[in-house]
């Protein structure tokens, strides 16, 4: 238990301590790292991350193409949460390289990531319940008039436009977020990301704790993002949710790449079997590489 006590509280899922074993499925990683055409948006190569003695990411490779929806799956402790925190600048990688739009970048803070066009939507901490939709969307980036006061008119107009582009029709930009449903809140958080010209939106468990109807709404938002050419990384436990929208699914296990496969080349049963076992076994030698 000593080892796990050093783990930061917000990384509840990285509780295994396996020392520094290399990743088993180097193969999948090698396939992904192969040169692709100019459409690569985000490319993370050989990412390592330690928390004390815990080696949470052990050389993960992760690529997202422009306008692509990637499902990021894996059991608890697989490292998916750590990986996206590295991609959003929340954690810095101890080893490895990150390329964005072909150039190597250093992500030292969420600000760095946001400046590049990487927006992360966390489940719980995204919105302020007592503030209006418009004030939430522009929080921290409020437009001002010549007098230095908030330009409420611009905020209202652009908020409604951003929501409409997501297919989300809310009655008023003045409505308080506390009055919205879980699905609508996700919509507002995503609208904020695209309004500020995100090229990549990372959704951390966007469908957790939502009703069936709300899940459908969120999946529609993801499709709207893709239609606008925005790439999406969709982290989830629920394969059924991600299967209907993702172009590609990446599975992590014990801090390594396990599977990287086009959605059309596999099915839910096959993948959930792999995730549950945490190893490839002999199940998918044919389907583990995409593109």
């Amino acid at each position: 238990m000593e080892g796990s006590a050093q783990v930061p509280a917000n990384d509840e899922e990285e509780l295994f301590d396996t020392g520094s074993l290399p990743c088993v499925s180097e193969r999948a990683a090698a396939e992904e790292a192969a040169p692709t055409n100019g459409q690569v948006l985000l490319k993370m190569v050989n990412i390592h991350k330690w928390f004390g003695r815990v080696h949470a990411l052990r050389g993960v490779n992760f690529t997202v193409h422009r306008g692509e929806v990637v499902g990021l799956c894996g059991d608890n402790g697989a490292g998916k949460s750590t990986l996206i925190k590295v991609a959003s600048g929340y954690h810095t990688a101890d080893e490895g390289q990150i390329f964005f739009e072909g150039r190597e970048v250093k992500l030292r803070s969420p600000k760095d990531a946001r400046a590049l066009g990487i927006e992360t939507v966390y489940q719980e901490q995204a919105l302020c319940p007592h503030l209006s939709i418009a004030r939430n969307i522009f929080m921290g980036r409020e437009p001002t008039t010549l007098l230095g006061l908030i330009d409420q008119r611009t905020m209202n107009k652009e908020s409604m436009e951003a929501l409409a582009s997501m297919g989300l029709r809310l009655r008023s930009p003045h409505a308080l977020v506390s009055a919205l449903s879980g699905g609508q809140r996700q919509g507002v958080a995503i609208a904020r990301a695209i309004h500020f010209k995100a090229k990549l939106v990372i959704l951390d468990e966007p469908t957790i704790a939502l009703s069936v109807k709300e899940v459908r709404e969120v999946l529609d938002f993801v499709r709207h993002l893709r239609d606008q050419g925005v790439a999406v990384v969709f982290i989830t436990h629920t394969l059924h949710h991600v299967f209907s929208v993702a172009d590609r699914i990446v599975v992590l296990a014990h801090g390594c790449n396990l599977v990287d496969v086009r959605t059309k080349d596999t099915d839910v049963d096959e993948l959930s079997d792999i995730i549950a076992r945490g190893t490839l076994g002999d199940a998918v030698p044919t389907t583990q590489h995409a593109r």
Partner: peptide, 27 residues
């Protein structure tokens, strides 16, 4: 005026309403 019409006012409300969200948005 500061509270209702200024940017700083919006940050005050955001800080009180959900400090995690406010921080995540760079406040």
């Amino acid at each position: 005026i500061v509270l209702h019409l200024g940017r700083f006012g919006n940050w005050i409300y955001a800080t009180g309403s959900n400090p995690d969200a406010a921080r995540a948005m760079g406040i």
